[in-house]
Amino acid sequence: MIDIKKKVRAFIVENFLFGVDDELTDATSFLEDGVIDSTGILELVEFIEEEFSMSIDEEELMPENLDSLNNIELFLTNKLQKK
């Protein structure tokens, strides 16, 4: 079982939160809480595609899939099952 949240969290903490993850909960909204901006979301997509060897379609670029650790886990779990 891949630990999706752990990997994505590590990427975000290293790249956007300067190594400090005190306020990043699983439900934190990346966009609304200023963790990542709209360009940052695409850097996150680049990371996910590389790390999980998958491609994310443009229709999938929506907050329901990518705006929190919980959303990402759910989205990627479903996507990986369909692979």
Binding site: E32, L42, E46, E58, P63, D67
Partner: peptide, 26 residues
């Protein structure tokens, strides 16, 4: 300036809505 994933991207209304709200809030 931005990853290649941003080079051709259909704007998602919900994503823009959230990003805009965060920007205005600043």
């Amino acid at each position: 300036q931005a990853p290649i994933q941003a080079a051709i991207m259909k704007n998602n209304p919900d994503l823009i809505f959230k990003a805009q709200r965060a920007q205005k809030k600043a």
